[in-house]
């Protein structure tokens, strides 16, 4: 028996909106410890991992581990019927009485989980999620790739396109800066990676879920763009950097 109830459907809608450009079908792996999802995009250069903690739900019951294969576009269509403050219940067993009842077909998706080491990034930047989204969107109108460089002074975004170049530098803020505006940097050594902007722009669809975004970078590893949700844990996006030839 699996029963998840959330009194704010809007949260689930936002989560779904942030991932459905990247992935069409995915397994929601539900266990007593929470509901997680890991999926790669079709080109296998980007990946996302999502964790929804049990205490983020008003009701969370999961008697046995269950993997729900869902078509995300269909799920989004279903959720569009719910207002942001409506209650949404997901049952993977017999449903109980309720005011409205939507049923969705589950699908069998074969997927292999990747083991992702979390620690040991050379540079970790925390910055306002809206600022990161704005930069990616703006640079996306100029170039296809962005070079992100982190030094102890700040984070730099550089792109080059047909109409020339753009360069945005965000300086680290002082510790007294407001949380909303703060830019903090933890760094072992300077890192510079080149990334496809269209994926980064797609990741920023998660901006409504969190005030701050955490960007973790190391040479020779995928960049991690993480949004920490207030009550639901996190959503992380991974992107393999471009390699210069």
């Amino acid at each position: 028996m699996l029963e998840l109830r959330l009194t704010r459907a809007g949260l689930l809608k936002k989560v779904l909106e942030s991932i459905r450009d990247l992935v069409t079908d995915a397994n929601f792996d539900c266990a007593a410890t929470g509901c997680s999802l890991q999926a790669m995009d079709s080109s296998r250069v980007a990946m996302l991992s999502l964790l929804l903690r049990p205490d983020g739900f008003e009701h969370y019951r999961c008697d046995r581990n269950i993997s729900m294969g869902m078509n995300l576009a269909n799920m989004a269509r279903m959720l569009r019927c719910a207002s942001d403050d409506d209650t949404v219940t997901i049952n993977a067993d017999d449903a109980q009485d309720k005011i409205s009842d939507y049923e969705m077909k589950l699908m069998h998706i074969t997927s292999e989980n990747l083991e992702i080491p979390e620690a040991g990034y050379e540079a970790i930047v925390k910055m306002p999620a809206s600022l990161f989204a704005r930069i990616c969107k703006d640079l996306g109108t100029i170039g296809d790739t962005v070079m992100i460089s982190v030094t102890k002074e700040g984070i730099q975004f550089f792109t080059r396109g047909d109409i020339r170049t753009a360069n945005i530098f965000c300086r680290k803020t002082t510790p007294v800066a407001k949380e909303k505006e703060a830019i903090s940097i933890e760094m072992e050594k300077p890192v510079s990676l080149t990334l496809a902007l269209r994926y980064l722009i797609s990741f920023t669809k998660a901006t409504p879920l969190a005030k701050q975004v955490t960007i973790s970078m190391s040479y020779g590893r995928p960049i991690v763009v993480e949004y920490k949700m207030e009550i639901m844990d996190h959503i992380r996006f991974y992107l393999v950097p471009k390699v210069e030839e």
């Binding site: 790669m40 296998r44 250069v45 980007a46 990946m47 292999e112 989980n113 990747l114 083991e115 992702i116 080491p117 790739t145 080149t194 496809a196 590893r221 995928p222 991974y238 393999v240 950097p241 471009k242 390699v243 210069e244 030839e245």
Partner: peptide
């Protein structure tokens, strides 16, 4: 800026 290695190269399957 051609090659973009695949995700599986970086993480192990569990």
């Amino acid at each position: 800026l051609k090659s973009q290695a695949r995700m599986v190269r970086f993480f192990r399957f569990s």
